[in-house]
Each structure stands twice: as structure tokens, then as C-alpha cells.
Amino acid sequence: MGQDGTSTDVVQVQDVTRSFGDLQAVAGVSLRIAPGETYGLLGPNGAGKTTTISMIAGLLEPDSGTVQLCGEPMGPRHTKIRSRLGLVPQDLALYPDLKGRENLNYFGALQNLRGKELRARVDEVLEVVGLADRAKDPVKEYSGGMKRRLNIAAGLLHRPALLILDEPTVGVDPQSRNAILESVEALSGEGMAVLYTTHYMEEAERLCDRIGIIDSGRVQAEGTRDELIHLVGELDQVRMDGTGDLTAATDALQQVPGVQRVDPVGGGLVCAVADAPVHLAAIVTAASAHLELSDVEITRPDLEQVFLHLTGKELRD
């Protein structure tokens, strides 16, 4: 599928670059996304996410490299193929003075939808983003989260093969954010290819089948969440709080397969383990022999740490 780049890929990006004056915003990005796959571009501010997306969406001409959508070349001069693309831009691209439904009617009309079909699609996407009851209100009266959701709805009207979402949850309350993530999951479940940019690690982890970590205009590493974490060799941590013989417990735990290190911490112990869920039962059994456990907690290394490892920077600045 995605990884081996067969012709079923919805989008194929081959080594695109783009500079603005002296600034190289994108310094060679390649990626492929298969139908039903959600690909995350995870990177900090200014990493080149939006510039990459603008090139994939045919809004910006790459300095070099190619983009193909559904096997056809994509670029500012390729108008027709854009009907296969749904773009949800980072900035809210809506008419604030028009009603929610009027905005959708406009963007639907641009996709050659009309009449009954347009009405049905508008109703459907309003339902998807949970705005059916606010469709008659002007967008300027919407909350930030509602605007974001309408912004997404406008990209869904024509059932695109590839949906691009550029930081769709920025400045959104937790409830709206969850609604947005759920609808993305649902769309991907229907077979839509999704390209999702974010600098929220949790979103990338939750949504994305594969993740590209982008910094300074380059994809620094790419793979599933587990592959990426494996890349940096980070271990899971099992923390156990309890009372009893900590030294004996430490010795016992060091015998458990998978456990690489045991350290005392506060009123308990922390074990560094290769794959904590697999070994958890054995760990707890070994510890329980010497300790009265009050709490057990697993922390798995996250993309934040991967990012730090790859770039020497924090993901969020």
C-alpha cells in the first residue's frame, strides 16, 4: 500500500522543493498516501507543512519535484483534477457575512454540484460536522470551533479522494476538537485518503496510520507511530508505587524478561521495559512479591521524544 508506492496511491509527492527568496521553506519532501490511509505531517511552526500542502493542492508551483493526484499531474495549471481534492486550509477560508449553508452552497457550486444533489450533500456534511441546527446563522456569529468545523465541511462536499486538513484543530475547545477528530476518523473509515498536518502529537498518534516528522522543510523520519518510536529506541516506563522491600523488589524485577533497568523514584520504582503491555503481568507479579502496590502506571515514549531526538528541538515552542 502506501509504503511500497503502488499505483493505487491517491497522492504521490516526489521530492518537491520550494523557496521564498533566500528561505528554503520545503527542501525536498516525498510522500505517498493510499486510499483509506491517514497520513500525518507533524512538525513545529514554520516547518514547511502549509507550503508542502499548497504544492500538493496545486496552489503553489514547486521549484522542483512532482505531485500526482490519482495518477494525474497536479499544479496551478491543472484545474480539472482538483475535483478529487478537498482542501481545508489552516486559515478559516469562509465568508463571515454569509450563512453557514450559503458558504457551503458556494463551495459546492464550485465543485459543479447543483440542485438536489447540492442540497443533499450540504445537509449531509452539516450533519457530519454537527452544524445542521446552525446552518441558517451567519458565520460571523459562530464560535471559533464552529467556524473550524464549517471550514472542514466545505472541503468534504464533493467526496474528494484526498482530504487535506491543515491544522484543523487550532484554537478549538476540547469538545469541538473531539468532534473534528471523530469526523476525520469516520471519513478515513469510508476510504478517503487524509493528509493531516498538526503540531499536536496526540492528534497525530490518535488519527494517523503513518506519520512524517517534518522540520526545516524536510521529512526527518516517516513510519507508523511504533516504527518511529522504535527508531529512537525509547523504552516504556512502568512506575509502581507501594510499600515494602524496595531492594528485593528491584532485584526481582531485574530478572523479569524485557526489563532493562529499574530505578527507585519517590515512594516506588520505575522499570524501563521494551514492550510494557506484553510484560506487565510478569512485572506486577514480581513486584507484588515484595511490595504492597498502591498504584501502577505505564508511560510509553511519545512522538514528542522522537521529535526531540530527531531534531534536538521541542515540538511546541
Partner: peptide
């Protein structure tokens, strides 16, 4: 100007619509 500012023109161009 409002349409340009709100990036609606850019989004319009992401649809199968020529400049």
C-alpha cells in the same frame, strides 16, 4: 479585499476553477 483576506479566493482556486 475581504474575500482575499479571508483566503476564500485561495480556497476557490483549490476547487476545479481556473484563475
Amino acid at each position: 479585499i475581504d474575500a482575499r483576506r479571508h483566503r476564500v479566493i485561495a480556497r476557490t482556486l483549490a476547487a476545479p476553477v481556473s484563475a
